[in-house]
Design a binder for these strands. Structure first.
Lengths: 368, 368
DNA sequence: CTGAAAGCGCTTACAG
DNA sequence: CTGAAAGCGCTTACAG
């Protein structure tokens, strides 16, 4: 598109010029350009040739042919967390460099995404969109396929459903991240480790969960299903999840939360119940957003390069839009465990400690 | 533009018609349409009005304007805080309702905004953009005027410089908010109240500061310049600002921070120095973002309806784009003081308490 | 800063 | 089917 634009802009040839070159009058060229019928085929040929030669476009056409920079659409499932801000920052960052414009929308949780995907794809096509980046969305495989069917490049970041095979997905090394989190907790001496996950079907959640499970298994620690609670990547899930885990007969001494937002919820509920972190309960988050750093205590968290993920997704979409080959169907960026203040060895080998804590708090709980 | 487009298609109004209506010559209208500078502001107004009335678009514009929904550009100064997420959420929210698309860019702190405003305005015109929303930006009055000269509707949210008179600005009742914050602290018994503000020139900062000052003055409390520190709306400013305030011979017993981000920085630095909030230091933030609720202790904060501000800005831009009259040149939405855990009466009438705290921490400070 | 005049690029109406 | 002529809508160059 960039090339076409430049040619058109450079030439800015006139209709008269074309007429001269074709050896006809201006009105005749005008007729050809506007698709009038009353032109001899032979004449039309000559004019068409001249037209092509000087790269003429009518004033109206010019605008359409030279429509400025590429436009990429970015669809967020929701726009609530530090996670999305970071991803969007990365995208906008690279967009500025690449001279591309970014259209943002929120699909709003409903998998419908406002318009049906067919209509949306058609609209994107009509408006010459270069591609689509879908962030943590619940688009179904069928919906994403609709875009691909129309030839629109699509890249997904941390999708909630497995994407079709012709859609590039960008994410972090979630399995390795989950492993690092669990290893850290096991190394501190924890054995009863709860997992407060994201949406059960989400690829990234699955990977984090399996990283965590693989560590337990390799250390001969039983994986107890009741210690695994899936939910949304939101603080409410942390609050409810902690309550649930504390209600177990053997509550965990450590929790691996699949996002910082979830961890913040855990922190808040723990504080409300008088459970000290990390003395009574160790906590690891995931994402490594500013939330992790700002919380009290500062959150040990598996950081993922969210801005880089955004940049990477845009790079991949543009590459596809320009017909360049994909180097990978799945782009996976490294995670890193950042140890802060929310993790420590378990208080005592005696497992009754936590349950006593939680029991005692039942009485003194403020009636919120 | 749905309406305008339809009108334009129906009528296909000409420049001459606009000229007649505005009582000027065709060349003059041409100048306005093409953003030439040499038109008297008064004349420009008349032409702009006539233009809007007949829904005129230039031949080039017509092509671009016709297909698809309106596109509004949103330019953020930066995209770092919960504040921007909330504003953007409000904008996208209303965009979905209004059937409008939103193009997001980050101007990147530099007042240059990538392209010069003239070129950017021209490009927006070429691409048939319906309008521009500028969030907390450092665009100068001259830069914003460039957009208006091209007839592009512009709305600013919390600008860092005073906007030109033909630009609508959307904000909250900052003066009242500053007043509420200070009243609350004074009512608790505080007299030495520091102010950690935003950029000195920013309208919203000025208003918050003056609300604060008016309370002190009406209570016969001296306003000490050394207790007022301007800076950026970021946590770093809270950290540095607290250090500065603590270095005073009479350090404050309470701080009013002009944003939650700043307050979070204060909280972090206070914690590092072993200063307890609210026992040793009361703290009020501004914005009422999730940050305020999630921090420990939860932050007393003047909440502003950020999402509503976003919605309101978009509504106003679209109204202008459709040639409807403005109901107001300045939209001001209500703030509300939300009292949480970070404020309490001062520890003792004896003012030496805080300074002892800060002095003692000098020795035990971790060497970060 | 304004607009009469000239001009540009294109289209239309029509004579051939 | 073709193109000279007239015309349209807009812009430019410039005198006031």
């Amino acid at each position: 598109m960039a090339t076409a634009t430049r040619t058109a802009t450079k030439a800015k040839s006139t209709l008269a010029e074309v007429a001269r070159l074709a050896g006809v009058s201006a009105p005749t060229v005008s007729k050809v350009v506007n698709g009038r019928g009353d032109v001899a085929p032979e004449t039309r040929e000559k004019v068409l040739a001249a037209l092509a030669k000087v790269g003429y476009s009518s004033p109206g056409q010019r605008r359409v042919a030279a429509p400025g920079p590429d436009v990429v659409e970015v669809a967020f499932d929701a726009l609530t967390s530090a996670y999305t801000t970071d991803v969007l920052t990365g995208i906008l960052d690279y967009a500025a460099v690449a001279g591309v414009e970014v259209m943002v929308s929120v699909t709003g949780g409903t998998s419908g995404a406002g318009l049906g995907p067919e209509r949306r794809a058609q609209r994107m096509l009509d408006q010459g969109r270069a591609g689509l980046i879908v962030v943590t969305s619940a688009f179904s495989e069928a919906q994403l396929s609709a875009f691909r069917r129309h030839g629109i490049p699509v890249v997904v970041i941390d999708p909630q459903n497995p994407p079709p095979s012709d859609v590039v997905s960008v994410g972090a090394t979630n399995w390795a991240g989950g492993k690092a989190a669990a290893e850290h907790l096991v190394a501190l001496g924890h054995e009863r480790i709860g997992y407060l996950g994201g949406p059960e079907g989400a690829e990234c959640n699955q990977a984090r969960l399996h990283g965590y499970m693989s560590v337990l298994m390799s250390h001969g620690i039983a994986v107890k299903p009741e210690r695994i609670v899936h939910g949304k990547f939101r603080s409410e899930h942390g609050i409810e999840g902690l309550k649930r885990l504390l209600s177990l007969s053997e509550p965990p001494t450590a929790i691996f939360a699949a996002s910082d937002s979830i961890a913040v919820g855990v922190l808040r509920e723990a504080r409300r119940q008088g459970i000290r972190v990390p003395e009574d309960l160790s906590l690891v988050g995931f994402d490594g957003t500013a939330q992790a750093e700002d919380s009290v205590p500062a959150l040990t968290s598996v950081s993922q390069p969210l801005q880089e993920m955004g940049r990477s997704a845009l790079r991949s979409v543009l590459r596809q839009a320009h017909g360049e080959p994909l180097d990978s169907h799945r782009v996976e960026l490294a995670t890193e465990l950042v140890v802060r203040e929310s993790t420590a060895p378990p208080a005592a080998p005696d497992p009754s400690r936590i349950s006593r804590q939680s029991a005692s708090s039942d009485g003194s709980r403020p009636s919120t």
